[in-house]
Design a protein around this nucleic acid. Structure first.
Length: 299
DNA sequence: GCGACAG
DNA sequence: ATCTTGTCGC
């Protein structure tokens, strides 16, 4: 399923009738997961066609207005809402409960993605396989444009090859749904039989299926997730657990987990070895940024 | 009121 | 990852 979540979302916003409002949370629920609330705000901020897509009709769950991307900011939002008959007092919408629109016609796309994951997740293997080389991957973003770098390295972090790709993403960043933003892009451009080091998590994920697992299963190659911050699991010294089961490692302030086609133990040994020389994701990040800046120079 | 929230 | 249209739980 390759959904353009931006388009799907703007179509949802168009359903809010004049004279009514909805909330960021209700739109997130219509997408299929409340965790997308902030992404709703982000997509509204990027609304390419204000008024046509009536983003001014979206307010916060407590009845206050929330932001508006306009030189006059929230004042413009108030003006638009009042012109549609909405009463606002002290920055709060009156009769909030009577005029809140919740009846979206939707197929809950994020729920669909979660269902699809259940099938893919069965294909995760934590058995070691052979691979050609090691490739570290990172993406830099400017709005909806991604600049992706694939940096082939040896075990001493010596750079052997660099490949860069530029694309427009069709999915916002939503916590725990990072696969559908960056993973789709990695899958689109990567071709080979290397071990991939990916900026995010593998099996160390609330649904056991993070970005590195998504890529590892779909490409059927070994992948390791390397995250800079904590998403899921309980840290005990250098191990990260979910219940009794180990799901990852905490090494040098990084959150490491196998994606697929590699064992927990091999992930540890390889990452330990690489980290003695440096952080491969940081390396890929430098090249992704450099690529982004050089492309922007070309304008 | 402050921190979480993979990037 | 950027540079700010959220929500929940402590």
């Amino acid at each position: 399923m390759d959904i353009d979540l931006y388009s799907y979302f703007y179509d949802l916003v168009k359903q809010i009738p004049k004279g009514m409002v909805t909330t960021y949370k209700e739109l997130a629920l219509a997408l299929g997961d409340q965790i997308a609330s902030r992404a709703v705000g982000q997509m509204l901020a990027e609304n390419p066609t204000p008024i046509i897509v009536p983003c001014h009709r979206v307010i916060k769950s407590d009845g206050t207005l929330g932001g508006y991307n306009h030189p006059f900011g929230t004042n413009k939002k108030i003006e638009l809402l009042e012109s549609e008959g909405i009463k606002i007092k002290n920055g709060v919408v009156e009769n909030f409960n009577e005029i809140i629109f919740k009846d979206f016609k939707t197929e809950f796309p994020l729920k669909k993605l979660r269902n699809d994951e259940q099938i893919l997740k069965e294909k995760i293997s934590l058995n070691d396989v052979n691979y050609d080389g090691i490739v570290a991957i990172d993406g830099s973003y400017n709005g909806r444009t991604i600049y992706l770098s694939f940096v082939k390295i040896d075990e001493n972090l010596k750079i052997l090859d660099i490949k860069n790709y530029k694309d427009i993403v069709n999915f916002p960043y939503i916590p725990t749904y990072f696969s559908y933003r960056e993973g789709k892009e990695i899958i689109k451009f990567y071709d080979g039989n290397d071990l991939l080091l990916i900026d995010g998590n593998g099996i160390m994920h609330p649904r056991g299926f993070g970005l590195a697992s998504f890529v590892g299963v779909i490409k059927n190659i070994p992948t390791i997730g390397i995250a800079k911050s904590h998403l899921f699991g309980d840290i005990f010294n250098d191990k990260i657990l979910s219940g009794n089961a180990q799901i990852g490692w905490y090494i040098q302030n990084r959150y490491i987990s196998p994606g697929s086609n590699i064992s927990m133990e091999s992930s540890f040994i390889l990452i330990k070895k690489l980290f003695k020389k440096g952080d491969p994701i940081k390396l890929a990040h430098i090249y992704a940024n450099r690529f982004m800046e050089s492309e922007q120079q070309r304008q």
